[in-house]
Each structure stands twice: as C-alpha cells, then as structure tokens.
Nucleic acid binder design. Structure first.
Length: 152
DNA sequence: GCCAACGTTGGC
DNA sequence: GCCAACGTTGGC
C-alpha cells in the first residue's frame, strides 16, 4: 500500500466533482510534468490511497481521500487538438502522457489548510511544503499519511 | 492581480 | 551542452 497527494484546482476539478461522477470515479488527465507522469505510469497501484488537494483557491489544502482504481494508461486528451491539454508530440503509438483513474473515498472532516501543514514539524521534508514546490503528484510516507489524518 | 519558482524550449 | 527567454504553477 502506497500513499500519494494529488493537486487539483477546484474550479477545474474538485473533490465534489469526483464524488458526483458515475461510480464516483474519474480519470486524472492533463498532467504534463514528467516526474508526475512517471509516478502515474510506473508506480501507482490499484488501491493506493491519495490525498486530494485543492490548489489555487482561497484556502488551499487537503480536502479528502481518493484511491487508485486503474493504473497508468495513456492520457487521450494529449491526442485531441481541441483539448486544452493537447500535445502534438504525444503519439497514440508512443504516448508521452499517462493518467490513472481515481475513485472517491471520503471528504476529510475539515480542510487541512496548507499553512497548517507547513507549520507542522512532523511534516518537514514533505514535498508539498518545500519551497517553490510545483509537483502535482507526489508521494506521501505512511508516517505523514497517518499524522495528517490525526489533524482532521 | 502580482510575482517567485521552476520546467521547457530553442538558438548558438 | 549552455543558458536566456518564455510559459506555467500556485501562494499570497
């Protein structure tokens, strides 16, 4: 069992959107960063637990939990010229970008705001709180996972 | 809306 | 292979 954190702008796709999808499941498309791509393509496994993080919003923070329901497969939005995430360099025969499917698990009892995560000594070293971090998919250790759940 | 941090692109 | 220019992310 592995743990992850994935960011989304709630104006684009929120945890409420995920909860409202058929089977409470949606594919996580549009990631165009190689580090994040590699984790989705190579490392994430069905059943892995994911913190759902809202970025670029009034109160950025962890809002809930999802789980991986399908392992990495090609991100088809890269093939569609009409899609905002279109990438002409991604070929269906040699896809450059990958995604996973996530299934909604639950909301946290409250949003754990970013400043609180940053101020927490137990979370020092977590990728999320490192300066200038822009990764949209990152690993979370089991210790960090458990600790964050004590904060809700 | 501003802007720091960072990744990518492309000229050389 | 270097690095300046540029675009994007995302907190504030």
């Amino acid at each position: 069992m592995q743990y992850w954190l994935m960011k989304s702008e709630p104006d684009e796709f929120s945890i409420d959107d995920l909860q409202g999808r058929p089977k409470q499941t949606e594919h996580w498309d549009g990631v165009r960063n190689y580090q994040a791509r590699n984790m989705m393509r190579d490392e994430m496994r069905v059943g892995d637990q994911v913190f759902f993080y809202h970025s670029n919003t009034k109160v950025p923070g962890i809002v809930g939990i999802a789980e991986v329901s399908r392992e990495g497969y090609p991100d088809h939005t890269a093939f569609d010229p009409n899609d905002p995430h279109y990438d002409p360099k991604s070929d269906p025969d040699a896809p450059r970008w990958f995604m996973v499917d996530l299934r909604y698990v639950r909301h946290l009892k409250r949003t754990i705001p970013l400043p609180e995560l940053k101020a927490d000594p137990a979370l020092e070293g977590m990728a999320l709180v490192r300066r200038g971090n822009r990764l949209s998919v990152m690993p979370v250790t089991e210790e960090q996972w458990r600790h964050i759940l004590t904060l809700e």
